[in-house]
Amino acid sequence: MMETGFDVVLALMLLGVGGWSIIARNMMTAVIIFIAYGLLLSLAWVRLHAVDVSLTEAAIGSGATGLLMVIAAHKVAGDSQRVVRLSRGFHVLAAVFATLVAIGIASLAFVLPGAPVSLAAPVLERLPESGLGNPVAGVLFVYRSFDTLLEKVVLLLALIGVWALARDQDWGGVPGLRLFQHPHSVLMLLARTLPPIGFVFAIYMTWAGADVPGGAFQGGTVLAAMWILVMVAGVRRVPRVSSPLLRLAIVAGPLVFLAIGFLGFVAPGVFLAYPDGLAKPLIVVMEVALTLSIAVILGLLIAGPPRAKDSA
């Protein structure tokens, strides 16, 4: 009864906060509400027993995406002349379309065959072979590691896409992250005290991901947040995009992943298969390298393309 009550309240809050972010007049307000909406959504995922999804929603859906939107809203607000105001009719049309889509999706949930068909049973059945305890990690790094490998390549291309927006003369310079360097600000205090805690937390999340919810993506996001904090506060310099060390950190994850994939050709003879008994140690090595790369890439995606060298 208690739980049902919680679910009803959560569902109502989701609808309310979602609606609020749509009708908010000010763009920055809408973005902040959207971030809150993402956090509520991650609670909903916990209630659905999808803790891995919940962590990802909080870290990526709400955190990293929210931060990108804050930056975008800030840039647009500073350039109000170029903001295109859409007509009222367009808003109504969009609302009608979105409502129809929502109704369509909701009704499809009812047309799916009665008993949910799922691969959960076979996934769990063969999980012990790999030595992992978290079935989500099993899907990501054992059964469908090919998807995960290619997704990491997509992440590299996302960074290439952001970097493509730089001007030629600015190339090789420092990303145009806005800095707030005030020696006595709260930000400075946080930038000096939070990172050690965040660092330990990120390592824990990555390490624990093999057996309980967590993993490279969630750990990497926490690490990225810490990195951005110290860069924005000016505790650490923003690196140049052409820095060899930075490049190494970017490709470390995909590189180790590919190497372990090719190792499979040698033993046991299949690409992306693990040698007997070595599955878990190899996956942990891979996750550590991926955590580093994900953290650096997310940080660079938020930092944006390199800007004119003098403004850095």
Binding site: F146, D147, L150, E151, V154, L157, A164, L165, R167
Partner: peptide, 28 residues
């Protein structure tokens, strides 16, 4: 079908930088 989705994403995110590469308002 999901692996193919990853392929579609990779293709899209590779094609867009090529379109944007010249810079300038029109290509962006």
């Amino acid at each position: 079908l999901f692996n193919l989705y990853v392929g579609l994403e990779l293709l899209t995110f590779a094609a867009i930088p090529v379109v944007a590469i010249k810079g300038g308002a029109e290509t962006l």
